[in-house]
Design a protein around this nucleic acid. Structure first.
Lengths: 218, 218
DNA sequence: GTATGTGAACTCTTTCACAGCC
DNA sequence: GGCTGTGAAAGAGTTCACATAC
C-alpha cells in the first residue's frame, strides 16, 4: 500500500517551495519554471523537479508549473490544507512571544492551550488563551487533545515536560529549550536552538578571520 | 595551506557534542567512549569518531576520550573560547525575548547593540542595552563593529535589514523572520523558522493518521 | 581486553543529460 | 523551441570492520 519512502530532506524543502510560490503568486505570477523557482530559492532546477517527482507530475512540458495548482498540491501533500491545534508549555518571555506571534495562525497553526508552573501566570488570559497549571497538563490534554506541543520552558524542566507531553498522547513536539535531543521512539521532536546555530556559525567566522590574518603563500 | 574542506554537517554536529559533554562533566564523568557519547546523543559511535578525526586524534585506544580535554578541543575548534559581539535588529516581543534570554551570555554571545524603528522604543534601555534607531544602523555598526547580526523584524522589512547589515560589514546573520532565504554571496545566513519546522512536521502527522485510519491489508 | 582512528564499502542525495511532450 | 520528468552517473555522507595502540 505504501508508496516508496520519501527522503526527509525532500519533505523539509517543500515548505520553502510553498512559501516562495505564495510570494510569486502575490506578485501576480501564475506560471513558473523550475529554473526560475530555483533562482528564487537558491536551489538547482533539477532538485526541484526531482523533489516534485516523488509526488506526481505537476508541470507541463515546455511551459512550467501553474503556480496556484502547485501551491495547492504542496499544501495538500504537507497537510497544510487544514488546521492544527497546538499546546504551548511555558509562558515566560519566550512563550509570550510565541503566543503573540502572528505568523502561526495564518498558516493554520492555532495555539489553543497554554500551560505554566508559575502561580502568577495560571488563570491569566494571554492572547486569548487561558494559562492552565502544568500540573494538569496530562489530564487536560487527554480531555482535549492537540496535534503538536510547543516546549518553551527552561532547559532544566524541558525533558520532564517532553515526557509528560508524550504520556499525554502528543507525539509531535517543537522544543525551544537547549537540551540534548533524546526523543523517545515514535516521537517526532524538532529543536529550535539559536545557540546551536550560533555555535556552528562561529566556526566559519573564525575561518574567515584566519584567512584574512594569514594571506595564502603561493 | 588549507586542510581538506570539512563537511558542513560535521561542523553542525560539534556543538551538540560539546553540549552533551558539558552535561556529562557536570555529572562528574571524566572519561567517555564514543559508544556512550553516541548513546547519549542518539548517534552512532562511528560517526562521532569519524567527525572528530577531521580535526585530530583526541582519544586513547582502549580507554576513550578525556571529557575535559575533548570539550576544550571542541570549543577551540568552534571558536567558543572567546566572546562574540552581537547586534539585535528589532525589539518587538520576539526581540525582547531574545534580549532577555539568559542562554546566550554564558556561551560567550553578548548582545551589545539593539536597533528598532519604533520611536517609542528608541532610547529605551532593555536588559542593559540602549535601543538605537535603525536609521543609524550602518553608521553605528561601522563605528563599533559586531561579529553577528540577529534579525527579529517583521518579514516585510527583513530583506532590507539584512542588506543593510551586510553593507555595514556584518557577514554572519541569524534571521528569525520567515522569508525566502536569499543570502548574498559571502554572507552566512541562518534561519530560525518555527513555521517551516511545523510545516514539515505535519507531513509526518498526516502519514501517521493515514496509517491508523487504514490498517494495512496483508 | 577494550576502544580509537581510518580506509573501504555502502547508502543516500544531488546533478546530469536527454527522451518525451507541450 | 522550451521545459518537464526521470533513469543513470556522480558526489556526499555514513557505517563497517579491523589494524593499531593503550
Amino acid at each position: 500500500m505504501n508508496g516508496p519512502e520519501i527522503p526527509g530532506v525532500v519533505i523539509h524543502r517543500l515548505p520553502m517551495y510553498a512559501r516562495a510560490l505564495a510570494l510569486l503568486q502575490a506578485e501576480g505570477r501564475d506560471v513558473i519554471s523550475s529554473l526560475e523557482l530555483g533562482q528564487e530559492l537558491g536551489v538547482t532546477p533539477a532538485q526541484i523537479r526531482k523533489d516534485l517527482s516523488y509526488f506526481g507530475r505537476f508541470g507541463k512540458q515546455g511551459r512550467g508549473y501553474n503556480v496556484q495548482q502547485l501551491i495547492d498540491r504542496l499544501r495538500s501533500i504537507l497537510g497544510l490544507d487544514r488546521e492544527w491545534r497546538l499546546a504551548l508549555v511555558g509562558v515566560g518571555r519566550l512563550g509570550q512571544a510565541i503566543l503573540g506571534y502572528g505568523g502561526f495562525s495564518p498558516q493554520g497553526f492555532k495555539v489553543i492551550r497554554a500551560f505554566d508552573s508559575d502561580p502568577d501566570q495560571i488563570g491569566q488570559i494571554l492572547d486569548g488563551v487561558r494559562v492552565e497549571s502544568v500540573a494538569n497538563l496530562e489530564q487536560s490534554l487527554r480531555e482535549t487533545p492537540v496535534d503538536i506541543g510547543i516546549v518553551a520552558v527552561p532547559a532544566a524542566s524541558a525533558l520532564h515536560v517532553i515526557d509528560v507531553l508524550v504520556a499525554s498522547g502528543v507525539h509531535s513536539i517543537l522544543n525551544y529549550a537547549p537540551i540534548v535531543n533524546r526523543a523517545p521512539p515514535g516521537v517526532h521532536l524538532r529543536q529550535i536552538d539559536p545557540v546551536l546555530e550560533l555555535q556552528s556559525m562561529t566556526y566559519y567566522l573564525k575561518q574567515r578571520e584566519n584567512e584574512t590574518d594569514t594571506p595564502a603563500i603561493d
